[in-house]
Design a protein around this nucleic acid. Structure first.
Length: 390
DNA sequence: TCTGGGGTCCTAGGACCC
DNA sequence: TCTGGGGTCCTAGGACCC
């Protein structure tokens, strides 16, 4: 989906179309404050000047999505709000309305599945679709079906998307970025050399900042240069599995199927504090946040019908280092008090000498609730650890 | 005035078992 | 006195993705 979070907001505030808008830095509806000043004005009539600006933003958030107008200024996803404010102070800032985003996410995926049932969910704004057995899926190399999907999504939601059609997922993913927004790109096997090989290795889905930097150091910049590397040489530098995978990716080889169903592996909740907290001095505040995180994970587990056996905590220190500790228990649980007790034991094993920036609670080794007989054993009261005592 | 939140997968060492 | 392989599970960290 094109600039998904921002596009969803623009449906509500069409008067902001064409303007630099960024989404991020908070959650909820943007209306709340605006409503005070414009109690009787329809949402789509509130003047753009009334909306909050990036230059007035104070906080630790990052940009979730930027409109194409904002991207002109160099603002983009995952960029800190404060840095974005320097680049484009006049941009309008809207919080993330997850309920609304999820609603549109479900809608566009339902539309796709109606047309092409073999669809793999890749997060809130992205999917893989297998055209192979869809009637007409091969016409014009898939372009006809891609166009049909775009039109159906637009009719149902008012949103646009970009589609890449290719012989496999790796190439399709790259092709989807060739013609944004609202574009379709068809890439065939014989186009590999002309259209894929000139791209930077970083464009391969799976090569991130670290692998990119290492490849640069080795003098490999483009996918074509990567394809020219000896497979064995890549294996020497990146290990058996990654090296071989890189070589295959560069040659456009990818036989992963489109997976329509999958079970979750873990569920977690984490939060970055408004200011860094100290384990001793801010013990009460931390304890309250910790309890809340446990309750939210437990609620997520119950809502989705899972129990988990591995319970863990995640800390981010003020220097951005991350520490995790986890512990596996006998029987899966979705109970907030049990999660808090076990997570509390994990917390006791992690150094708490530095200020903390983030705290998270995770439950893994999930299985559907009800699959396991019996209920989770609980620890005795007196085992409850003394949290955040230094 | 840097740097969110929710995920998956991989690696590597150690415990433990046969 | 020296020293097998194979396997699974647990734990911690890290890369990467949306």
């Amino acid at each position: 989906m094109d600039a998904f979070f921002a596009s969803v907001e623009l449906l509500r505030y069409p008067q902001l179309r064409g303007l630099a808008v960024v989404i991020g830095g908070g959650r909820g509806r943007a209306d709340a404050l605006l409503r005070e000043r414009y109690p009787d004005t329809p949402t789509d009539r509130i003047p753009p000047e009334a909306f909050p600006r990036l230059q007035d933003y104070v906080g630790r958030g990052v940009i979730t999505t930027a409109t194409y107008a904002a991207r002109q200024f160099g603002v983009g996803s995952a960029m800190g709000m404060m840095k974005a404010a320097r680049l484009c102070p006049q941009a309008i800032v809207l919080p993330v309305d997850f309920d609304e985003v999820r609603r549109y996410s479900r809608t566009f995926k339902d539309v796709i599945r109606e047309i092409a049932p073999v669809m793999e969910d890749r997060g809130v704004d992205e999917v893989y679709i297998d055209f192979t057995d869809v009637p007409g899926g091969q016409r014009e190399g898939g372009r006809v079906l891609a166009r049909l999907i775009q039109k159906a999504i637009h009719a149902a939601t008012g949103l646009t998307c970009s589609i890449g059609v290719a012989p496999n997922k790796q190439i399709a993913k790259m092709a989807s970025e060739f013609d944004k927004p609202n574009g379709i790109s068809v890439v065939l096997d014989e186009d590999l050399q002309a259209r894929i090989w000139p791209l930077a290795v970083r464009k391969i889905n799976g090569i991130g900042p670290k692998a990119d930097a290492k490849l640069q150091r080795l003098g490999v910049r483009t996918i074509g240069e990567l394809a020219a590397c000896e497979r064995e040489w890549l294996v020497q530098h990146f290990g058996r599995s990654t090296g071989a995978w890189m070589h295959d990716a560069a040659w456009g080889r990818d036989d992963r199927p489109v997976v329509t169903e999958s079970e979750p592996v873990s569920m977690s909740r984490e939060t970055t504090f408004e200011r860094d907290l100290h384990a001793v001095r801010d013990k009460a505040a931390l304890g309250a946040i910790f309890t809340d995180l446990c309750e939210r994970v437990a609620a997520d587990l119950r809502r989705k019908g899972y129990v988990g056996r591995t319970i863990g905590v995640k800390l981010r220190y003020d220097d951005f280092r991350i520490a995790t500790r986890d512990q596996t228990i006998e029987t899966g649980t979705d109970d907030a008090a049990t999660i808090r007790r076990v997570a509390g034991l994990c917390l006791k094993r992690v150094p708490l000498d530095r200020r903390l920036r983030l705290l998270g609670v995770r439950v893994g080794k999930l299985e559907p609730a009800g699959a396991a007989a019996g209920s989770a054993p609980t620890l005795a009261r007196e085992d409850t650890p003394d949290l955040f005592a230094s």
